[in-house]
């Protein structure tokens, strides 16, 4: 028997709980609706053979997202009964991931965006080797609290493996960035 079936059956009690509009869903759906409508409008300018499918798809998308918007705004689902008693291990993986991201502070988000942003900006400018080495050392030292030595060895090994695989064995190009350092 699964968790759901053990849960007591709610009668009127569930309905009395206040329905709340799910704001993220509202925003996401609105954005998607705008994209679909814009795509539709763009497609109206093309010749028939190139336009029929985009028109159909963006039209269908607009209808699907508009109807979902109506659902979000006017028929929000009853809030689930609080499942505080559910043990961590019984939660589905999607649920765990969802909660993981939900529990992040805005500091966490800014921090990871800065680290990733820094890496990819460095990649665009200096190419993979420099970006990778700088990121590896800095990240391991300051974010993962490893020793300088560990960070340096890690960076050298990673760079070495990439170099060996791509430059020597496979002879495949790697991103060199604006300065062409690859």
């Amino acid at each position: 028997m699964s968790i759901d079936t053990i849960r007591p059956v709610h009668g009127e009690e569930g309905g009395s709980r206040r329905r709340r509009v799910n704001k993220p869903d509202l925003i996401i759906t609105s954005v998607l609706l705008v994209v679909f409508v814009a795509a539709y409008l763009m497609a109206t300018g093309w010749k028939e053979l190139a336009a029929y499918f985009p028109l159909g798809v963006s039209g269908a998308g607009a209808i699907a997202s508009a109807s979902f918007l109506v659902r979000v705004l006017f028929f929000p689902p009853k809030p689930d009964a609080p499942k505080t008693d559910v043990p961590e291990s019984a939660k589905s993986m999607a649920e765990q991931e969802y909660e993981f991201f939900k529990n992040l502070t805005s500091r966490d988000w800014i921090s990871s965006i800065c680290w990733l942003g820094g890496f990819f900006i460095a990649l665009a400018i200096f190419g993979i080797y420099v970006a990778m080495a700088a990121f590896t050392v800095a990240y391991l030292r300051f974010q993962a609290d490893k020793s300088w030595l560990f960070a340096a060895i890690y960076a050298v090994v990673l760079g070495g493996v990439i170099y060996g695989a791509f430059e020597i064995i496979l002879k495949l190009p790697l991103p060199g960035g604006l300065l062409g350092l690859a």
Partner: peptide
């Protein structure tokens, strides 16, 4: 319902590029 919206968005994204019949940039 969310899945349908996302799938439609995926189909729309697949149309990015030169169309196969007329060479229109989409």
């Amino acid at each position: 319902h969310k899945g349908l919206v996302m799938a439609t968005m995926g189909v729309l994204l697949s149309l990015v590029g030169i169309d196969p019949n007329l060479g229109t940039e989409r």
